[in-house]
Each structure stands twice: as structure tokens, then as C-alpha cells.
Design a protein around this nucleic acid. Structure first.
Lengths: 151, 151
DNA sequence: ATGGATATTTCAGTTCCTGAACTACTCGGG
DNA sequence: CCCGAGTAGTTCAGGAACTGAAATATCCAT
């Protein structure tokens, strides 16, 4: 296993970060326009259905104690409520309000528009790019601490 | 310009975020092992040569006032000093100390190792992936606020 | 009923980040 | 030479994200 510099590899990591940065920049801008800080907006996108705090923490790759604060913010803004799960009253489901649903749709729409604009240049090669990235990610298991935050 | 859902596009954005998340997770872990918070580690990697605060802010896509705090942290840790530029005494160059240089090398080594591990699965297709991403990024200009932070 | 797990919260402490106001310096024109 | 416009950096107040440890409430198996 060589430890030499690998220019292609370095370019590749830079490009992945740059591409993610563009997407994230667009997402954060869209979130800000809707009056949402990044982490709260990120959680919102993940609420296609009610979800326990625990799942959100796992999805965000962060400590559960952190999720408390983020969901507090969403609750303050009236976009979400906590509903104790009937089956197990320890767990609380985070559920979108009507306003939360609206805000989420708007956020997704804007986010997708950003993505479309970014990937426009390669047009037909979209599938090829997707397959390559999928192969990369299928390769090694998630080592945790991915930290989706600041999408 | 259609506003319909585009499954390929959505997969693509998810994959880019996932890939970036893996890299970032590895980077943050490496940084933590070296006793550095993410943003400070990130700045460290960008100091291949002394740089004015201004340039760092631009590279990070953040406000100059933010860089002050980050560089303060690096200075507290003795990894960096501020040196007024002789040509223009308004600007301060951020310069690595000996220890800073060592820490930077170690950080880069670990970061590159992570990247190698991640991209291993696609082996020979590395170049193809790089070219596709390069094409994507060459397409539209940087709208700013990319926020490289939390690499 | 007891005790060991699990879900969430609370709290203290750090880091990151913005926007506005401020200091220090540069540089061109009168 | 001095003045004013512009630029680099800092300071300050405030918000948001994050961790780790300790506390609370609940579940479940014995």
C-alpha cells in the first residue's frame, strides 16, 4: 500500500468537496430564504414521515442530545410537534405540522432546482456519474461520524 | 424548464452528499485525533504557504470576522503566527510554526489515506469520475457561500 | 417487583458563524 | 502635505450546532 502522493486522488477529493459545497451552498441559501438555519432545514427534508429522535440522530450522524436542540428550533417555529409513540412512550415522534409540510415542500423544490442547475452541464452523463458514485459508496461501509449537517 | 421530480438527479445529489460526508467524516476524525477542531484543521491544510486572512476567508467562503476566531485558535495552539506584511501593514500573513508544519503534514497524510480507501472500489475509473465532476464544476460559476467548512 | 437496557432531555462548555461598528493602514488628488 | 475614500483586520453581541456526562422516564425480562 503506497503512501505516495496521488494527484488524481487529490483532485478527486477536491472535486467531491467542491461539488458538495455548491449543493450545500444552494441548500443553505434556500433554507435561509425560508427563514431556517441549515441543520433545522436538513432535518425538515428528512421528515417525509414522522420519525423518532433516535433515527434523526443516526441520519445526521450526531449525538442524540444535539437533535434535541435542533427539533426545539423547529418546534419554536411551529413546523413540527413531538408526539409520544403509543407503542413505547419513551420514544417521541417528530411530526410535521401543516405549515411544516408546506415549508418542507418549498425547501425541496428549491433544493432540487439547485441540483438541476448544477448537473446541467453533463446532461446525458448523469447516469454514468451516479453509477460511479454508487460504486464508490457501496465499496466500504460507513465508518460513522459522517456528519451530514450543513448540507 | 420542467419542475418535475427527477429520480436520477435526486440520487445524484444524495450520492454527492454521502461521498462528501464520508470524506468529511474521515477528515474530522483525523483532525480530532490531532487535537484540532474541524475549521482549524481545514485552515491548516490550506497553508501550503503563508496567506493573508482575507484569502483564507475567501477560500472558506465565510466572513473575515470569522477567520479571526479560527486563526486565534490555531495561534493559541502554537501552530501558527500572524506576521504583518512588509509591503502593506494592514494585511497579516498567517504563517505555520515548526509544530504547525508537522501537524499539517500528519493531517494531510491521514486525510489522503482516507480518500484512497474511499475511492479504492472504483480503481481504474478514478479518472473518469474526476473528469465528470470537473465537467460539472466547470459548467456554472461559483454562486458564493459554498462554505467549505466542516470539510 | 427489581434491575438492566433504551429514548430523550438537561447542562456546561466549545466551536463556528454572521453583521455592525471600530481601528489601522494605504493611496490618489487637491 | 493632508484629506477622504477604500481596504484589512479586529471586536462585540448574538445565534446555532455540537459533544459528553448526568438525570429522567419508560420498557422488558427475570
Amino acid at each position: 500500500m503506497s503512501t505516495q502522493a496521488d494527484p488524481t486522488m487529490d483532485e478527486l477529493t477536491d472535486l467531491v468537496f467542491l461539488a458538495a459545497g455548491r449543493l450545500r451552498g444552494g441548500f443553505n441559501t434556500a433554507a435561509a430564504e425560508l427563514g431556517l438555519p441549515p441543520a433545522q432545514a436538513l432535518v425538515l427534508t428528512n421528515l417525509s414521515a414522522p420519525a423518532p429522535m433516535r433515527d434523526l440522530a443516526e441520519w445526521l450522524s450526531c449525538e442524540p442530545s444535539n437533535v434535541t436542540g435542533i427539533v426545539d428550533g423547529l418546534e419554536r417555529r411551529g413546523l413540527v410537534i413531538r408526539r409520544p409513540a403509543p407503542a413505547d412512550r419513551r420514544v417521541k415522534h417528530v411530526v410535521l405540522t401543516e405549515e411544516g409540510e408546506r415549508r418542507r415542500e418549498e425547501l425541496l423544490a428549491r433544493s432540487r432546482a439547485q441540483a438541476r442547475a448544477l448537473f446541467e452541464p453533463i446532461g446525458p452523463d448523469k447516469e454514468r456519474l451516479r453509477d460511479l458514485l454508487a460504486a464508490v459508496l457501496a465499496g466500504s461501509p460507513d465508518p460513522g461520524k459522517g456528519h451530514a449537517c450543513d448540507r
